[in-house]
Computed example of a mutant assay.
Amino acid sequence: MRPDQISGARIETRALTKVYRGARRPAVDAVDLTIEAGEFMTLLGPSGSGKTTTLNMLAGFEEVTSGQIRLDGSDIAPVPPHRRDLGMVFQNYALFPHMTAAENVAFPLKRRKVGKKEIARRVAGALDLVHLGDHAGRLPSQLSGGQQQRVALARAVVFQPRALLLDEPLGALDKKLRESLQLEIARLHKELGITFVFVTHDQEEALALSDRIAVFRDGRIEQVGTPSELYEAPASHFVATFLGDSNVFTGHARDGVVDTGWCRLRAPGGRDQGPVALVVRPERLRIGAPAGPGANVLSATVTDVVYQGAFRRVLVEFDGGVPGQVRDTTATGTTRVGRGQRVEVHWPEDAGVLVPHGAPDAVAGPSPAVVR
């Protein structure tokens, strides 16, 4: 299978809603989302945010309460799953244990009554695509978890779907294998050219794989953007604290200054913005080195230093009782501090982002000020 053999579909949802009987609120609440043809779109959010329910409605496994799902302009909400021309990959692989890898991959083609010669050709091509051509005769029990997931990927693309839906496909794998399969999934997307819709709660995975990310919260989409847009310019307190580590200083903004009640911090923008959260990523903070002109400078006490291989996290408590963290690489970082040491932490004025102040109640963290 080559990219010119499969064309990606444009997927749109319009006011897509799912309400379960007896529920206090919709599981998915009037979601509008456009996924361009050939795009890698990730639906990201905490448990219960509506991302998997949205994917299951796209697949046809959940009935739509109201709204539309359009595939290249045609409403497919009434269309049964097997007629939507969408591939699906699950977290638990969902392979038939009594069938070989080749037989599992061939299954959707047999259901579509494809001829034997064509089935053999497509199965061989799909297994080669996931580098399992020499494992065609093995049962799932004879394959590793990563190999089983590759068979599931091959089965999902062998009938040449217009889009591939992936429901946390790497969640059951260990970290190293998960990272390896992330590269495989990215390669498959590039080679096949079809639309990928990927569900995960893993922020790093979403940042690594996606063309764009839709961040879900309480059944709605909080923000849609590229990985860099969401990380560098979050539109809300929730997105800022859910996607990556953040130092958060809450207060009132006026004339480009945030008054927290215990300190005043320079921030981008000059208009009055009322209650805000100033978000600063930990890699933008520095300890010890001379601060540049206009930098924010705060005194703090080091509460812990965590070595994490490629970088170290320095946990601090700012004067005023607000916790925070600084991150630098172990190779080039200059941070040499210990627990209990008094330090000055600084960052450039333009390193922070102002967002409307609101409690990130779906995110667990050590404090309201620094959330991992």
Rank of each mutant, 00 (worst) to 15 (best):
R313S: 12
Q142D: 13
E205P: 12
V19S: 09
R150Q: 09
P3T: 11
V337M: 11
L177P: 03
G365H: 06
P46W: 04
G309Q: 05
G365A: 04
F311Y: 15
A15K: 14
L170Y: 03
V31T: 06
V64W: 05
A186R: 11
Y231A: 02
K113I: 11
A208V: 14
D85F: 08
H252Q: 13
A186Q: 08
H237A: 14
G251T: 07
L95N: 02
R24N: 07
T334G: 14
A126E: 03
A331P: 00
P368R: 13
E184K: 01
L181Q: 00
E62H: 14
V371F: 01
L207R: 04
M99I: 05
V343H: 02
E103P: 07
T330E: 09
T226D: 09
E349W: 04
Q147V: 12
A30K: 12
T335D: 04
H357I: 00
P290L: 09
E118A: 13
V322G: 00
A295T: 04
E184T: 15
G60M: 05
L143A: 03
I221M: 05
Q203S: 05
L188K: 05
D245E: 15
D128M: 01
D218E: 13
R339N: 06
S228W: 09
Q142R: 14
V215K: 01
D4R: 14
A289T: 15
G256W: 09
K51T: 12
R121Y: 09
A59T: 13
G219E: 02
K117Y: 01
E222I: 01
A101D: 05
S299E: 15
P227R: 00
P26W: 02
M41L: 13
Y20T: 10
